[in-house]
Computed example of a mutant assay.
Amino acid sequence: MVMQNHKTVEDTYASRETMNSVVSSSQMKSVMLSKTPVRYFLKAMMSGFLLSIVAVFMLAIKTQHNGINEGTINLLGAIAFSLALVLIVLTHSELLTSNFMYMTAGAYYKSVPIGKIVWLFTVCFIGNIVGGFVLFGLLKFTSVMTPEMVTALTKIVDKKTTLGTWDGILVKAIFANFFINIGIYVSIQFKEGLSKAFFIACGVVVFVFMGYEHVVYNANLFSGMMFYNLDALSWIDVLKNIVWAFVGNYIGGGIFVGLLYAFFNGKRNHYIDEQK
């Protein structure tokens, strides 16, 4: 005799509470952009600023530990850079690549119109880049960026632009934002700060250590080059990197995480039906 199965389809929605939080956040972001656009833009700038200042911190670690095992240096840099996303998420700043997950889930559940999502992506990306410009502009008044750090920055940018192929950038960008948003999605399930920080950091450590492509991080590295080594930039290759990293990041975070986990946790009209 087999035990009767009284489970329903709704019981298979294993992370429904997490998805409720994601959809709620997508609506809050939409309201903030509509009602307080200056505040939204400043929060996007803060993400770019935090990302850039921690990128400089990572460069300092790598150059000051030059001479030890390369894998160890890369791991130290990856762990250091994970601090950026932890600070961004826990301060509720606005980062384009995490919004790919939030807003795509919102689109699936029809909580935010497509036109508003495209506008939010545009404003957020511009704000992220401006935040990086502000950081590197301020650094020019200091001696923080040593010649060794500028050399390291140039090598990283050269690898991402002139040495990078469009398909390689695309695939590595998919991997980067998949890991980032999986980490964020898991972290939403925890209330305690250290648990959230741990899972957020895990995805970042993987993407940085493996050398994957993150469009905001890359754009802010290009901002740094504009202040410290402008002549070494190939603008066609910069555009190639930004375009394909943007597309890949959207696929990795928006489709592989946002859309898939929205599909895993209910029908498209779920929230609309609840309001009736």
Rank of each mutant, 00 (worst) to 15 (best):
M1N: 13
E10M: 10
E10L: 12
T12C: 13
T12N: 15
Y13R: 09
S21H: 11
S24I: 06
S24H: 11
M28N: 15
V38W: 14
R39G: 15
F41A: 08
K43A: 13
A44F: 05
L50P: 04
A55Q: 06
A55N: 02
F57V: 00
M58L: 14
T63K: 09
T63V: 08
H65Q: 13
N66P: 00
N66E: 11
G71H: 08
I73F: 10
I73L: 11
G77K: 11
I79C: 08
I88N: 04
I88F: 00
L90H: 11
H92F: 15
H92Y: 15
S93M: 12
E94K: 06
S98P: 07
M101D: 10
G106A: 04
G106V: 06
A107S: 05
S111M: 10
P113Y: 14
G115Y: 12
K116C: 02
W119F: 14
W119P: 01
T122G: 06
C124S: 14
G127D: 11
V130G: 00
F136Q: 01
G137N: 02
G137K: 09
L138F: 12
L139D: 03
L139F: 09
T142D: 07
S143L: 01
T146H: 10
P147E: 12
P147T: 12
V150R: 06
A152W: 08
L153Q: 07
L153A: 02
L153P: 06
K155P: 00
I156S: 05
I156V: 13
V157S: 03
V157W: 02
K159M: 13
K160S: 03
T161D: 10
G164C: 07
W166K: 10
I169C: 00
L170W: 09
V171F: 09
A173D: 12
A173N: 04
I174E: 03
I174D: 11
N177Y: 12
F178D: 07
N181H: 04
I182G: 11
G183C: 09
G183P: 01
S187P: 01
F190G: 11
K191P: 05
E192F: 11
E192C: 04
G193L: 15
A197D: 01
A197K: 01
F199W: 10
F199A: 03
A201N: 05
V206H: 04
G211K: 07
G211V: 01
A219K: 03
N220E: 01
S223V: 08
S223D: 01
F227S: 07
F227P: 01
Y228Q: 01
Y228L: 07
D231W: 00
S234P: 00
S234K: 13
W235C: 06
W235V: 06
I236Y: 12
W244G: 01
G248I: 05
N249Y: 05
I251Y: 07
G252L: 06
L259R: 04
F264K: 09
G266L: 09
N269W: 12
Y271M: 11
I272E: 15
K276Y: 14
